[in-house]
């Protein structure tokens, strides 16, 4: 029961207005037909599922209906922020680069 500030509406709203959209930045392979069984299986089924910080997608389902990215700690539900997909991508890439 946490609060999310939608980066499109600029409003902090109750979690129940939103719906979870899975791990963020799981890109669909550009050429699925050339993917191996293993790599396509990874894309479909293998998610990070960490205990701790997690980049995830949420939809503002009873609000603006936009998808955005939330960085949430799965162990205690604290959040660092919510960004549009494009904004989040930059922060995420920078973080991955230093990881």
């Amino acid at each position: 029961m946490f609060v999310i500030k939608c980066p499109h509406c600029f409003e902090a709203r109750e979690e129940e207005e939103f719906s979870y959209g899975g791990e963020a930045f799981v890109a669909r392979p550009t050429s699925p037909e050339t993917e191996s069984e293993e790599s396509w299986g990874d894309y479909l089924f293998m998610k990070r599922n960490p205990k701790g910080w997690h980049w995830e997608m949420w939809g503002h389902s009873t609000g603006c209906r936009k998808f955005f990215v939330l960085k949430r700690n799965t162990a205690n539900h604290t959040t660092v922020g919510a960004w549009t997909l494009a904004e989040a991508r930059k922060i995420y890439d920078a973080e991955e680069a230093t990881a």
């Binding site: 959209g21 890109a27 997608m57 939809g59 389902s61 936009k66 998808f67 997909l85």
Partner: peptide, 11 residues
């Protein structure tokens, strides 16, 4: 509806 919007917005 959500499925269509998600693919449109993300991919």
């Amino acid at each position: 509806m959500t499925w269509l919007e998600k693919w449109h917005q993300t991919e």
